[in-house]
């Protein structure tokens, strides 16, 4: 049974699920070797599993069983006791650590399987940021019954703070309502652009109050958005903000002067 940290999105924040799914993960686990193996040779062997690897999802998996590429950022052997190897691994979302251990066993020609696994990091979230269910329930009751929200405030992470891996584009107040209605984000609506956005990348559209407005696919890279005078910067994909929070400014209701 795998334990460890599990981010859970509430209500409106579930709209960010597809983006939250893409967060990198770290695990601590125990790999059981089917025959004993020299520790130094083992450390050398696992170097072959760092970087881009190819993986076929296991039989019991939610996805189609076709070979796919995943990135392993590190695979550290912490301790070895006989045939049991304690390891730490950092990997891209969608990596099957059980399969990784199996494949390492195949590579070593001795066989291996995963016996224990604990998730220690998701994106920037660490075990220290996690809470047991009883603690969560207590915090909720403390607020509901006693009106003290201090504990609950510490547990609730605004969705805006949970998605630092998605690059951001900040927009003018006047650009928000059209995006909420599914319109693309046009160049004229942009105030600032995070550097490093590529064309056709999932990006987030933010208000100047740091509210998440929507996710979309970039139609230009950061530099092109900066240089362009007009055109579509982002095709809106998933709207987060409810309609009607910001007005739709027009000739009758001009945007307030900001000079």
């Amino acid at each position: 049974m795998v334990t460890g940290i599990l981010p859970i999105a509430l209500e409106n924040a579930t709209k960010a699920m597809s983006v939250l799914m893409g967060l990198d993960k770290e695990y601590v686990g125990v790999m059981h070797l089917h025959k004993d193996f020299n520790e130094n040779l083992l450390k050398d062997a696992v170097l072959n599993f760092i970087g881009k690897i190819k993986q076929i999802p296991p039989v019991k998996s939610a996805v189609r069983r076709v070979e796919r590429e995943r990135i392993i950022y590190f695979f550290d052997i912490v301790e070895k006791e006989g045939k049991d190897v304690l390891f730490k691994v950092g990997c891209e979302a969608g990596t099957y650590v059980r399969k990784l251990c199996h494949d390492i066993g195949q590579f070593l020609k001795i066989g291996a399987h995963l016996t224990e696994l604990r998730r220690t990091k998701v994106g920037n979230f660490l075990e220290e940021d996690s809470h047991g269910l009883i603690e969560v329930k207590d915090a909720y009751d403390f607020w509901k019954d006693d009106g003290d929200s201090s504990k609950l405030k510490k547990i609730l992470i605004p969705v805006e703070h949970a998605i630092p891996h998605v690059k951001r584009i900040f927009v003018k107040d006047s650009a928000i309502e059209p995006v909420c209605n599914g319109s693309p984000l046009y160049i004229g609506g942009i105030t600032r652009i995070q550097e490093g956005i590529e064309n056709e990348e999932v990006v987030s559209v933010f208000s100047l109050k740091e509210e998440l407005v929507a996710f979309g696919n970039s139609k230009m890279n950061s530099r092109e958005m900066f240089d362009a005078k007009k055109g579509v910067a982002v095709k809106t994909d998933r709207v987060f903000m409810k309609k009607g929070i910001y007005p739709r400014w027009n000739e009758e209701l001009p945007p307030p002067s900001t000079t």
């Binding site: 509430l10 607020w143 992470i157």
Partner: peptide
């Protein structure tokens, strides 16, 4: 550009009810 304070709300100024509907929690499973 500046933002008009009459519209929208900074995430840290949301009420608890609003926070509940727009947040993520990290559970230790």
């Amino acid at each position: 550009e500046e933002t008009d304070e009459n519209y929208g709300k900074r995430p840290d100024q949301r009420t608890i009810e609003e926070k509940i509907k727009n947040s993520v929690i990290i559970v230790d499973k």
